[in-house]
């Protein structure tokens, strides 16, 4: 079966009902999509399918034949980050990194589809993604910075001044 990932067409051998996640990681060695819960609940396996964020663990290979798949490996290079990657870098939005691929792709889809998204729409778009380091404030800040075009890769050596506390959902413990 033919599968196009990050612009490159591959001949893949996995069973038609194998998950796209399995094919990406085990057959194509693309390990940015993470095998988290493998039942659709954590968001770490998220990839773009024809530009839309999807859980690769829930997609059988046969369902994406002919589609264009994008993983983080297709977003940018180490010396040429995509705007969303640069924003995550600038805002220290990655801690352990396990959820980062999913957030980057969900954020990228939002940037491409709804660059004028409000705070509420950003939270909704990211809400299927779980960060167990609970770094949500910095993640949301990074996504919003990218949406607003406020990305300054040259400022990555940021200051260590304490930041203002920010509450994303009123009444919630951060």
């Amino acid at each position: 079966m033919k599968l196009t990932v990050n612009g490159v067409e591959h001949d893949v051998q996995a069973p038609q009902l194998a998950s796209l996640l399995h094919v990406l990681r085990e057959e194509l060695d693309l390990t940015s999509p993470k095998a988290g819960c493998q039942q659709g609940g954590c968001g770490t396996c998220t990839v773009l399918v024809d530009g839309e964020p999807r859980r690769s663990c829930l997609l059988p290979l046969a369902a994406v034949e002919g589609a264009a798949i994008t993983t983080v490996e297709g977003l940018g290079a180490a010396d040429e980050l995509s705007p969303m990657q640069a924003a995550f870098d600038e805002h220290y939005a990655a801690q352990c990194g396990f959820c980062t691929s999913g957030f980057l792709l969900a954020g990228t889809a939002l940037l491409n589809g709804s660059p004028g998204a409000t705070r509420e729409e950003v939270l909704e778009a990211l809400s299927g993604h779980v960060c167990r380091c609970t770094g949500y404030v910095k993640i949301v800040r990074a996504v919003e910075a990218a949406l607003h075009g406020e990305v300054h890769p040259e400022r990555v050596e940021a200051s260590f001044e304490p930041e203002e506390t920010e509450v994303l959902i009123p009444g919630s413990p951060a």
């Binding site: 998950s19 663990c57 829930l58 059988p60 369902a63």
Partner: peptide, 21 residues
């Protein structure tokens, strides 16, 4: 859509003989 069936396949809880997609 696969959101209910795929976890069953991913975890090997279901190995269907015939699947109608």
């Amino acid at each position: 859509g696969g959101t209910i069936l795929m976890p069953e396949l991913n975890y090997g809880r279901l190995r269907p003989a015939r699947v109608l997609a």
